[in-house]
Structure formats: C-alpha cells, structure tokens
C-alpha cells in the first residue's frame, strides 16, 4: 500500500541553488507558503538538536521520540502565528523544553509504575561507534559511553529546573540570553540555575567519575 510520504520533498525549487542555507525569515516565509525545500531545511537543521535536547531532558529514547514529533507538529502548525519576536531556534527550543516538561509530568503520573522490559528499544550505534576511529582505543570508546551513561543518570536525579538550564547551556551550547528566552526567566535566574545545576551535578557525580580518567593502552610486541 502506498502512503503519502514526502517522497518529493527533496525536489529543489529553482529559486535557490543547492547548498545555500536559508535565513530564518526566508525559511519562515517559505514554510508559510508550503514550500517543500523549507520543510526539508527545517528538519535538517533542527531534528538532531531537538532530539538530543529531548533525550537529555527525559533520559528515555521513546519519550524523546514522541516529544520530537509533537514539537515539529506544533512548529508546522503554528508557524503562521510565529511573530519573529525571538529567533526560530529559541522558539523551537522553547516548545521542546515545554513539551519535555509536559511529557515528564505525564510520565510520572501514568507510567511511573510500568516496568520496561526492553530498556533500550531504539538502540543504534552512535556516530562515534559507527565510524572507525583509529585514534581512539576500544577502551576509550567504552569509557565515553559509560561516562555518558553516568552523567545522564546524574542529570536525571537533579532538579528538573536546574537540569534544563545545564542541558541548554552545556550540552546544547546556548547563550545565557537564549536560555533566558527559552525558559522565560530573567538573566540572573539563568545564571543562578546554571550555577546551582552544575554544583548539584558535581555533587551527584562525586566519586562516580573519580579515577575514571581514560587509560591509554599502548600496543607492544611480545618479547
């Protein structure tokens, strides 16, 4: 059965050449008139960071996938009402943070007692694992993976208010001003939340990462 998938979404409009990135204003205008390239551009530009942000806020791949779908649905449906008072990026991230917050609340209300059998249903190899990296030993790769798991678990334990600030600052790499706009708080509050969030995370990780500096293994020929 044929389904209405955006198979023609890669058809390029002759108005612009391949490889040129549209600015926010032009992208929004084209989205409003239903331009194919604009939809593709929006997904290409934001699907990865939105997914990463959702995953770090929720620590659940299934929940993060649901949130990402909701976010893009809202973006596509409300692009006509977007006034341009903030940048497109901060607007999308604000939707993401709100959706993740709602999903987390829903999760705690409804699914907290469920036991998941498959703890990692969407497990795919990351780019670091997929691309052979001759400069990194298998130990270092395993260490990174384990370290990321430990930090993610620690993130999950700290206050969600601080977590959002830390994730937006240190993982998504946004400026304080952007974070203030996304979270809808003052710059001082952002500074405070980042500071307290980092401290809380450091406290959570105290001892966990101690002595876990990667060892560099040197291959030697047996004598």
């Amino acid at each position: 059965m044929r389904v209405p998938v955006a198979t023609a979404i890669l058809d390029l409009n002759p108005d612009y050449s391949a490889g040129t990135e549209l600015d926010d204003q032009r992208l929004i205008e084209l989205l409003r008139v239903g331009d194919e390239r604009a939809y593709e551009e929006l997904l290409t530009r934001f699907q990865q960071p939105v997914y990463t942000l959702s995953l770090r806020l929720l620590n659940d791949e299934g929940e993060a996938s649901d949130v990402v779908q909701e976010v893009f649905l809202k973006v596509f449906r409300n692009i006509g009402h977007f006034r341009g008072q903030s940048s497109l990026k901060t607007w999308i991230y604000r939707i993401t943070v709100n959706e993740a917050h709602n999903a987390r609340r829903w999760f705690f209300r409804h699914r907290r007692r469920e036991v998941e059998l498959d703890t990692d249903p969407y497990r795919t190899r990351g780019w670091r694992e997929a691309i052979p990296d001759n400069t990194r030993s298998p130990f270092e790769v395993a260490f990174d993976h384990e370290q990321a798991g430990i930090i993610q678990a620690a993130l999950d334990r700290i206050n969600p208010v601080f977590r959002s600030a830390v994730v937006l600052r240190d993982i998504t790499d946004l400026s304080y001003e952007d974070i203030a706009e996304i979270l809808g708080v003052s710059l001082g509050t952002v500074k405070s939340r980042i500071l307290r969030g980092r401290e809380a995370l450091r406290e959570e990780l105290k001892g966990d990462l101690k002595g876990r500096l990667p060892l560099r293994l040197i291959a030697r020929t047996a004598e």
Binding site: P4, V5, Y39, L43, T52, F76, R128, I171
Partner: peptide, 25 residues
C-alpha cells in the same frame, strides 16, 4: 557534558518526521 551533544536520531523517527512534514505541508 559537551561530549553528549550528539545523540543519533533513530531512523524510524527521522522517517516519521518526514511523513509529518508532508502531511502538514
């Protein structure tokens, strides 16, 4: 933390997003 900014997006989700984009367009 900065090393955790690249979580690979599941292929099924990427495809689903394109379907959503097509419908919404």
């Amino acid at each position: 933390l900065q090393g955790m900014n690249q979580a690979p997006i599941p292929p099924a989700l990427a495809m689903r997003l394109r379907v959503i984009a097509s419908h919404e367009r």
